[in-house]
Amino acid sequence: MDVKFESWKEIIKDENIVFKKTKVLTDNVLSYCPGCGHGVAHRLIAETIEEMGIQDQTIGIAPVGCSVLAYEFFDIDMQQAAHGRATALATAIKRLYPNKFVFTYQGDGDLAAIGGNETLHACNRGENIVIIFINNGIYGMTGGQMAPTTLEGMVTSTSPYGRDPQMMGHPLRITELVAMLPGTYYVTRQAVHKPANVRKTKKAIRKAFENQQQNKGLSFIEIVSNCNSGWKMTPVEANKWMEENMFKVFPLGDIKVDGELVKEL
């Protein structure tokens, strides 16, 4: 035992460290299901805040959804909002504290259904904030009901025979919608299921916070993510299903950069 312990001590030395959890994440155990994208998305935001040195100036807002407890995980000042209302809170905070960094972290039910109006108008006013939008095509927290982003034919607990667009509407591509508003400055769709995607998403988050720093206006980052629990799949199956099905309706890549559309909608 002692020998093992000593060898551990020899390896874990400052000069050998290649990765360390950012101090902007707390040590609380994440409440997310193993394999869920929420955890990675949290880490990327927290790392960006640390790297930019803005921990003491950042106010985060998490409304209702699986990420309702996000304030347990970010070591920054945070507000928990009513379901769908995060961008209204963010609007006021940013206008009252123009020098602080304000971001919202919202699920698809939250941002695109119950909070659709707040989302649209915050984007249309071009509030100088960052919106992180986790699209997993389902209501994770309440146990896998249909979301506005649920794919055609997709089975959920409230579309048990598959989503029928005639009866239940079409998957809502709210990211394309807000990209068309003059108020948005940067709109992109990313994913966090593979290292290459994680790196791209991190870059996008950094760009979004820098836009805010430079008073450029609203940055909107959709992260297409899995909900393996809600989809009733293993994490590996869920990521595969996401690539094969979600990315067809929600293709990855920048939609609007520096206030200009870079993709035909």
Binding site: A88, L89, T91, A92, I93
Partner: peptide
């Protein structure tokens, strides 16, 4: 709905 939630954001920040 938005106005009251704007109050939430601003009030929670001490304004």
């Amino acid at each position: 709905v938005a106005s009251i939630n704007m109050l939430y954001g601003g009030g929670a920040a001490g304004k």
